[in-house]
């Protein structure tokens, strides 16, 4: 069962409410997406921890329905002012 970009965004936001999620469909097959997730809750966490938070949000779908989700996570850029 292929997932849509909307499914992924909804699942991520359900677990990380303040997340800004940008999803690109890499192959148009519902199986290969690139997602950029920006959230304050990532601040101070390692990349592995940040990615695990997103994988947990997609609980159970990673690896089977979603063969490959290219992830990019970060905390919001702090204002220079």
């Amino acid at each position: 069962m292929a997932m849509t970009a909307g499914d992924i965004e909804t699942m991520i936001k359900a677990a990380i409410p303040d997340a800004q999620v940008t999803i690109r469909d890499l192959a148009g097959d519902g199986d290969h997406y690139a997602a950029e997730v920006v959230s304050e809750s990532f601040r101070g966490k390692t990349r592995v921890q940040q990615h695990q938070m997103v994988y947990d949000a997609l609980s159970g779908n990673m690896g089977d329905a979603l063969h490959a989700l290219a992830l990019q996570t970060s905390a919001p850029k702090q204002d220079a002012g």
């Binding site: 990349r47 592995v48 990615h51 994988y55 990673m62 690896g63 490959a68 290219a70 992830l71 990019q72």
Partner: peptide, 17 residues
Amino acid sequence: PTIPQLYVKGEFVGGCD
């Protein structure tokens, strides 16, 4: 949840991304 996985000196460093 995914492969590949890289370990350096016994510590998981990350996947491809």
